[in-house]
Design a protein around this nucleic acid. Structure first.
Length: 150
DNA sequence: AACGTACACTTAT
DNA sequence: ATAAGTGTACGTT
């Protein structure tokens, strides 16, 4: 199937997406736009809707290394919640550092919600800029709050 | 095939 | 604040 590409806005950033059918190949934050539209899930998500990308699959979860398991575990972290690198490490029997490395190399952010994985004592990094991570976490919290007050 | 290095972490000084 | 422990991938012999 043909690989499609496009971008949508998230604040000051653009979210570039490459996909074919239900398979997401690559997602990337950039300062400049890429021509073309993105699957509706992405525009919904960027508009602050609760979106789990459930009808999509990421190439990342089928990596043959332990990274594949890490990505799978991260995918299960619900919208609006966070977990630490160490906690993810526990579920797949590796170290927090390795989880950090897997997050750094995550080919499909948002689909694999690596922004929900934070350090125990600090927010942790994000490529290309940790501001994005903060904004995403904040946005999800606000959406959650709006949905179920109290 | 082996080795060295780079890390989006964590825990103990 | 800083160092030691950590597990994996990846590039370089």
């Amino acid at each position: 199937m043909e690989v499609m590409s496009g971008s949508c806005r998230f604040g000051l950033w653009f979210v570039h997406v490459w996909w074919s059918g239900a398979m997401i190949h690559h997602v990337l934050f950039s300062k400049s736009p890429l021509p073309g539209a993105v699957p509706p899930s992405f525009t919904r998500y960027c508009a602050g809707k609760e979106e789990r990308f459930q009808s999509y699959e990421s190439v990342a979860t089928s990596y043959p290394t332990i990274y594949g398991q890490i990505y799978q575990a991260v995918r299960n972290v619900p919208y609006g919640e966070t977990e630490t690198y160490g906690e993810i490490a526990g579920t797949v029997s590796t170290s927090a550092r390795v989880v950090g490395q897997a997050m750094r190399r995550n080919p499909t952010p948002l689909v694999i919600p690596c922004h929900r994985i934070v350090g125990k004592h600090h927010i942790g990094g994000f490529t290309p800029s940790p501001e994005i991570k903060e904004a995403l976490i904040l946005m999800e919290k606000k959406t959650r709050k709006r949905k179920q007050p109290g």
